[in-house]
Design a protein around this nucleic acid. Structure first.
Lengths: 204, 204
DNA sequence: CTATTTCAAGACCGATTGGTTCATATATCC
DNA sequence: GGATATATGAACCAATCGGTCTTGAAATAG
């Protein structure tokens, strides 16, 4: 029988900061300023790490950015998974999903924008790693929305002639566009009304 | 009677390059790379100007960028004015308008993205001059689309319950979102189908 | 001709960029 | 204690940033 591998405890001084927390702080900086406009000192200030520690832990600015982007995507997808949960009324789910965008698009939140959209515009086409992540995210988002539309259709809640997958593509483009327009005009009431008007075109 | 002011011809060597052409070349660089990622040498190469000439003619990078942005906006608005011309069938106009976006969103055009969207995400909220321009552009675009929808409604071509101004807001968000999603997935057929499906929800 | 203006090319500027290295202190395990 | 590993912060790096200035040639007007 194989001897259980002894648990090799690390020998020296243990890491004293939370890596994931640092990623999250970095994410917030990239989110607020964009990739190019974020300088090392910004990241050091936000993560409260020394230059040495940051480079030892994450390699370089680009790698840290990818980890921050991954985190942003993970958060967005989990949120969608609860909003568009299968056990929920599909139309209710879609409303919750859109309400989330209205919220993230209002006031200061809106002005901050969306890390994904900003990254897509700034880096896509010039960074394969970014390309993959952005592409996959949009696909994943579309799939979830399409699922909700499908369930709504099965429940007879869609207007005549509405095709779930095409409606999902429309919705994805629309909410990403909201994020763009919301950068300069983040007014909650109008966003909410627009979102409602759009959804009304799809449901019975 | 006042003596006509003598036409003071400039004394020295005349300007040997076309300012507007230089702005346009600069616009293309900013369009492809974004503001921060565009370095002076990029602009010098594109405009074929020397450092001295460029600074004498435009002041600094930021001013040149604003001129490039203004040019981009002017082109976009004139295009819309012909697409959504009053003397045209309004629904035809909307189709032409959307077809333009499909076109600009396909293949290499799509991957290049949109200078306005990129600028909104990169600079809005941190640059008042940019804020003003972006905000005004979206308002102008929305007004034109709303006009077309109004005329369509008057002609009885809109589906029941469609309100022109709200439909216009939806369309503006949608096309800007197309520009975002198109950065990584610029497939013409899908864009066209999505655009058609959306318009179908509005017209009778 | 002279005076004037613009041109391109490049030297030059200080500041900042992302990134590395190193000395030193500290915290853990054995 | 000794060995090991990580922390920090500053020093340091070459490269690049946006921007200025100078030089000398070229093109115009009077």
């Amino acid at each position: 029988m194989r001897r259980a591998a002894p648990v090799q405890l690390p020998r020296g001084r243990p890491r004293s900061f939370d890596t994931e927390a640092a990623v999250e702080r970095a994410m917030n900086v990239f989110w607020s300023r964009g990739y190019h406009a974020t300088a090392l000192p910004d990241l050091l200030r936000a993560t409260k790490l020394s230059r040495g520690s940051l480079y030892a832990a994450f390699g370089d600015k680009h790698s840290l950015f990818l980890r921050a982007l991954d985190r942003y995507i993970a958060i967005a997808l989990t949120r969608m998974d609860t909003e568009l949960d299968h056990r929920r009324e599909p139309v209710e789910g879609l409303r919750a999903y859109l309400a989330g965008y209205v919220d993230r698009n209002s006031g200061a939140n809106g002005r901050r924008g969306c890390l994904l959209v900003a990254t897509a515009m700034e880096l896509a086409g010039r960074d394969v790693e970014v390309d993959r992540r952005i592409g996959n995210f949009f696909k994943a988002m579309e799939a979830r929305v399409a699922g909700a539309f499908s369930r709504a259709k099965a429940a007879g809640q869609l207007a005549d002639g509405v095709e779930p997958s095409s409606a999902a593509r429309i919705l994805v483009c629309f909410v990403e566009g909201l994020r763009v327009v919301g950068k300069t005009a983040p007014t909650r009431i109008i966003s909410q009304a627009t979102v409602d008007a759009l959804l009304d075109r799809f449901i019975r």
